[in-house]
Amino acid sequence: MIRLLFAATLLLVAVPTTAQDKLPPAPYAYRQLDDPQQEDSAKALMDTLRCLQCQGQAISDSDAPIAGDMRNQVRLRIAQGESPEAIRAWLVERYGSYVSYKPHIGLQTWPLFVAPAAFVALAALVLRKRFGKGDSA
């Protein structure tokens, strides 16, 4: 047990120090686009893309190097005039819908959008009987 504990200590110390690359961040990882409008649409897109290595964070909220490289990709493509949705589609083509926090309405995701409507319909159905004239009580 104790050896395991120490092994765990070593791991904790070793992983972050060695698994860190020495390259500076990609040009547009921490730098905004000069055109504020382009930067706004890049930011909006980055808020909805999932970092591939961090557990459940958007690439715009993460310090992981791969998130920085993804931000670089997004900003460069926006600067070249690509539309945000085209960039999203490009990434989804490579990583599946996992990479996008914005589920598109499709065969895999329709219950997400039908369920709330179904709930309200059900509530209305049940409540219809409930509302009587105020003085029937």
Partner: peptide, 14 residues
């Protein structure tokens, strides 16, 4: 691949 561009292009995540 200093900015992971090819990595993204082929859908690799690590």
């Amino acid at each position: 691949d200093n900015v992971s561009a090819v990595q993204f292009a082929i859908g690799s995540s690590g």
